[in-house]
Amino acid sequence: MKKNWWKILCALFLVYVIVAGFLSDVPHLPILHETIRNQYFHVCMWFAMITLLTTSLIFSVRYLSNPKMNNDIIASEAARTGIFFGTLGLITGSIWARFTWGAWWTNDVKLNGAAITMLTYLAYLVLRNAITDEQKRGKVSAVYNIFAYVMMLVFILIYPRMSDSLHPGNGGNPAFSKYDLDSTMRMVFYPAVIGWTLLGVWIMTLRIRIQKIKLQTEL
């Protein structure tokens, strides 16, 4: 039980986020209206994704210096869970765009950057499936993972800032910048980020454990 305290924290935070996320007062902003509450959900998907993909990168680098199956399993399962959360981020963003901008998808730098990131990571999975030799697969996919992570940083953090975007928080659009994110929103937003990220980590650990069992029983 001592080892599982963070799972309890995750559950408590997420239930709190759903209750407070819908019932707490939010700033009245044009364009966003009530959808500002998406910050507790949609935005957190990306936080969870970045955390998981960073974990994946760390274990890929570890695999290169210490080629143990364990490191490869953690790197691949972290990437898979990260891709899952990224996909949720894309879908929820698309739903929001449909009812705010009137289109499921626009050629916005931020949207395309996120899509390119997801494609880069999907290629990681394809690459893994294409190589049957375990040692080779581990090494090649670890090297590719470092490349994919750099691509993610470029397309999610740098590229959208180089030009104007319709996305909230860019180009003077109302959003969750330091001017708009008031203290009541912070009280929900920070637990939301932690809660959703912990949920992602929880799912990742389950997948890693199942993968380890698979490896063990095959021997």
């Binding site: 995750c10 559950a11 997420l14 239930v15 759903i18 209750v19 929880w202």
Partner: peptide, 15 residues
């Protein structure tokens, strides 16, 4: 809110 809390608790119990 009630529906969402039920879903969330359900997912967590399942996990």
């Amino acid at each position: 809110v009630g529906v969402l809390v039920t879903i969330m608790v359900g997912i967590i119990l399942f996990l």
